Simulated scan of single mutants.
Amino acid sequence: MSQLPKLGALAVVLRDGAALLVQRKNPPDAGTWGFAGGHVEFGETFAEAAVRELSEETGVIATPVQLIETAEFIHRDASGTVTHHFVLGAVLCDYVSGEPVADDDALDAAWVPLEDIYAKRLPMSDKVDDVVCMAAVFQA
């Protein structure tokens, strides 16, 4: 296992009172809902990675607007050993085209109403509601 954190990007797309979320297929958040995203490749910006991952995971096309948040996630097993360490950049993106279809490492993809996110009606990854709230402010 690498002793370095992994750099990742998240695509935050809002449209018609909903956010585009995917249900994760793989650990550490398997089964939970969050933003489409993944690893930032060498030489790639957060913005470039976010829109690439969005397209790969959902088929939706968007353009990056701005980095709105960075977050660090450290997951530990029952004995306290670090199993995953991510540094993520959430990129607000403007929807261009496409309807979400789960692909790549997503189990499902859907436009989830903001009120469902704020009420936590789905099992979600950490801070999804906080990031959606920030995105709504930036987009206003």
Rank of each mutant, 00 (worst) to 15 (best):
residue 133 C to G: 00
residue 55 S to Q: 13
residue 3 Q to L: 12
residue 97 S to G: 01
residue 27 P to A: 12
residue 95 Y to R: 12
residue 64 P to F: 05
residue 14 L to G: 12
residue 8 G to E: 15
residue 81 T to V: 14
residue 71 A to S: 14
residue 120 K to C: 04
residue 91 V to R: 08
residue 31 G to E: 07
residue 14 L to Y: 08
residue 74 I to D: 01
residue 27 P to H: 08
residue 51 V to G: 04
residue 68 I to W: 12
residue 45 T to Y: 01
residue 124 M to R: 05
residue 106 A to M: 01
residue 5 P to A: 14
residue 59 G to M: 05
residue 72 E to Q: 06
residue 32 T to Y: 09
residue 82 V to T: 12
residue 13 V to T: 07
residue 136 A to R: 15
residue 122 L to I: 02
residue 133 C to Q: 04
residue 120 K to V: 08
residue 138 F to L: 09
residue 99 E to K: 07
residue 12 V to P: 09
residue 64 P to Q: 07
residue 24 R to E: 11
residue 9 A to R: 03
residue 100 P to Q: 12
residue 26 N to V: 03
residue 6 K to Q: 13
residue 129 D to K: 07
residue 116 D to A: 13
residue 36 A to H: 02
residue 26 N to R: 10
residue 140 A to F: 08
residue 37 G to I: 08
residue 1 M to P: 04
residue 133 C to R: 14
residue 112 V to G: 02
residue 33 W to S: 11
residue 65 V to A: 10
residue 18 A to K: 11
residue 105 D to F: 14
residue 24 R to K: 09
residue 101 V to M: 12
residue 134 M to V: 10
residue 9 A to N: 05
residue 41 E to V: 12
residue 53 E to P: 08
residue 93 C to N: 04
residue 85 H to L: 00
residue 56 E to T: 00
residue 48 E to N: 11
residue 20 L to R: 04
residue 78 A to G: 07
residue 3 Q to I: 00
residue 95 Y to V: 04
residue 104 D to N: 15
residue 118 Y to H: 15
residue 41 E to A: 15
residue 23 Q to P: 00
residue 51 V to Y: 02
residue 132 V to Y: 13
residue 51 V to K: 02
residue 68 I to Q: 02
residue 37 G to Q: 11
residue 37 G to N: 10
residue 101 V to R: 15
residue 34 G to V: 06
residue 57 E to N: 06
residue 21 L to R: 12
residue 40 V to C: 12
residue 16 D to G: 13
residue 72 E to V: 03
residue 11 A to W: 01
residue 42 F to V: 09
residue 92 L to S: 06
residue 84 H to W: 14
residue 7 L to M: 12
residue 59 G to D: 09
residue 8 G to D: 07
residue 42 F to R: 08
residue 45 T to E: 01
residue 136 A to E: 15
residue 81 T to G: 06
residue 76 R to G: 00
residue 11 A to S: 10
residue 126 D to G: 04
residue 28 P to E: 05
residue 98 G to E: 11
residue 12 V to T: 07
residue 80 G to Q: 03
residue 9 A to W: 07
residue 37 G to S: 10
residue 84 H to C: 01
residue 35 F to M: 10
residue 27 P to D: 13
residue 98 G to C: 13
residue 38 G to M: 08
residue 13 V to C: 05
residue 125 S to H: 01
residue 64 P to W: 10
residue 88 L to V: 15
residue 11 A to N: 01
residue 7 L to R: 14
residue 132 V to E: 11
residue 20 L to S: 05
residue 110 A to N: 07
residue 136 A to L: 15
residue 24 R to I: 00
